[in-house]
Design a protein around this nucleic acid. Structure first.
Length: 454
RNA sequence: GCCCCCAUCGUCUAGAGGCCUAGGACGCCACCCUUUCAAGGUGGAGAUCAGGGGUUCGAAUCCCCUUGGGGGCACCA
């Protein structure tokens, strides 16, 4: 459909498949690779002559005919049918036009569509996931239009012409096409082509169990990518919607899926897209990545989180992969999406961190205690000194400080944590301090003390 | 309205007549670990297998009906 298709949509689809790691032996070009396969071209707009030839052939055999009904006539038919509680269908007004009738319409300049004769029969087929399916062709809505009045072909027709010419053996698609299948079978038979095997997959559902839609759910692969989901997890998650291995394993890579997936084990009931489960799987797969791999993938998310704070008016330093790589061990099991690095580490790249004074005070403490604690902690850390500024060296003296003053370690550590990061949930404190560095740790403690005194 | 499909914990599912007093996973709740948050570990709540009839010695599993849900019926794909 020329009006609805754009190169941008096409690119989205190809990019999505490529990102997921899905490749093909035959089909259009992707990611710089040329199109491959003996039956190209693989774009319908470039195959118009094929559809045209197929339509002419059906016309010549009287398996299809020209129809001159106007939209007004068809609308009127439909309204009458609705009023009579009948299913919408084409009444067949032009099914038996004489040559003279046709000539008259043509002379009057009426543009014709091409309709395929549907006839009356019970079409049966053996669907790989659903088994035997039977549909009466009288329920199909009458003779169907295969070519528009402007000469362009319609979907049901194009897919059959393509599948026939490309010698497609298996048509695997969503359940929403199940009722359309008899139309396709009729078309294949009329063209003298072998009818392929069909497998109708369960639909992916919105939480309200309706067919997943843009309106109610996030449906673009690119959006999940942008939110920090990784393809390993996404593919795994999708595969588990309607399919299971039959064992209790559920973490599968694409290549494992390639070996183990069978249509026979696909379920027929629809499956709700459960984002929490996706998130869990994403965390599982993130934990499998190497530090380098994870650093590379997470880098853009850190950069944009920092940039966002910069845009909000804070003074920031742009992070580099060298900054991020050593931090990976302390954040990897804390992130369920790549975007998590932003929330956990952005504070490291803010130069003028300002913390709400009220936030600095731990729940069971008051302002004075907090000020005293931060002052004492600053002294202890300064005493450790720049040379020994390491996680192992910091922990013992700070614990000792808490004990001497009768403070709960958790409270003391929390006050330092907030003073230095502006957050209550962070990676382990001492690693965080080290990542921040000696100078900046002291500076932030001083800034926090000043804020409390103000 | 007509046609088609579907039906096991909230969700994803295992289950192809006895192994099921229905198993696993996500989520949830406890507890352990623990400086916060996670991760991890242990345990728990959670499904009279939509309901009703059959068939059978025996049914979540087979058949029928009902109910519920979904999808399809375009000069969209």
């Amino acid at each position: 459909d020329v009006a609805r298709s754009t190169v941008a949509y096409e690119q989205d689809i190809l990019d999505g498949l490529h990102w997921l790691g899905i490749d093909w032996d035959e089909g259009p070009e992707v990611a710089g690779q040329p199109a491959r396969g003996p039956y190209g071209p693989y774009r319908q707009m470039q195959r118009l002559e094929h559809y045209d030839a197929a339509a002419k052939k059906l016309l010549a055999q009287d398996k299809a005919y020209y129809c001159y009904c106007t939209r007004e006539e068809l609308d009127a038919d439909r309204q009458a049918q609705e009023a009579a509680h009948q299913p919408p269908h084409y009444v067949g007004r032009c099914a038996r036009l004489s040559a003279a009738d046709r000539a008259a319409k043509e002379a009057a300049g009426v543009k014709a569509v091409v309709r395929f004769r549907v006839g009356e029969e019970l079409v049966k087929f053996d669907d790989i996931v659903r088994g035997q399916v039977e549909i009466d062709t009288t329920a199909l809505g009458g003779d169907l239009i295969i070519v528009r009045s402007d000469g362009t072909p319609l979907y049901h027709f194009t897919v059959c012409v393509d599948d026939a010419e490309m010698e497609i053996t298996h048509v695997i698609r969503g359940e929403d096409h199940l009722s359309n299948t008899p139309k396709h079978i009729l078309l294949f038979r009329a063209m003298g082509a072998t009818v392929p095997q069909f497998a109708h997959l369960p639909l992916i559902l919105n939480p309200d169990r309706t067919k997943m839609s843009k309106r109610k759910s996030q449906t673009a692969v690119a959006d999940y990518r942008a939110q920090g989901y990784i393809p390993e997890a996404f593919v795994n998650f999708l595969a588990l919607l309607g399919w299971s291995s039959g064992t209790e394993e559920e973490i599968f890579s694409l290549s494992e899926l390639g070996e183990r997936f069978t249509l026979e084990r696909v379920q027929s009931g629809g499956a709700v897209f459960d984002k929490e489960r996706l998130e869990w799987l994403n965390g599982q797969w993130i934990r499998k990545l190497s530090d380098d791999e994870l650093t590379e993938r997470a880098m853009p998310f850190l950069a944009s989180a920092v940039a966002a704070r910069g845009a909000a008016g804070e003074a920031v330093r742009t992070p580099t992969a060298d900054d991020l790589a050593p931090l990976m061990p302390m954040v990897r099991e804390r992130m369920s999406t790549l975007a998590g690095v932003g929330d956990m580490l952005d504070f490291l790249f803010v130069d003028d961190l300002r913390v709400e004074p009220s936030m600095l005070v731990p729940k069971k403490w008051d302002r004075a205690t907090t000020l005293a604690a931060l002052t004492a902690a600053r002294q202890v850390i300064a005493d450790v000194g720049e040379v020994s500024f390491e996680a192992d060296e910091l922990e013992a003296p700070l614990r000792q400080l808490a004990e001497e003053r009768g403070w709960k370690v958790g409270d003391l550590f929390m006050s330092i944590r907030v003073a230095v990061t502006g957050k209550t949930a962070t990676p382990p404190l001492f690693d965080t301090l080290v990542a921040l560095g000696y100078e900046r740790t002291l500076a932030r403690l001083d800034a926090a003390r000043a804020a409390l005194e103000a």
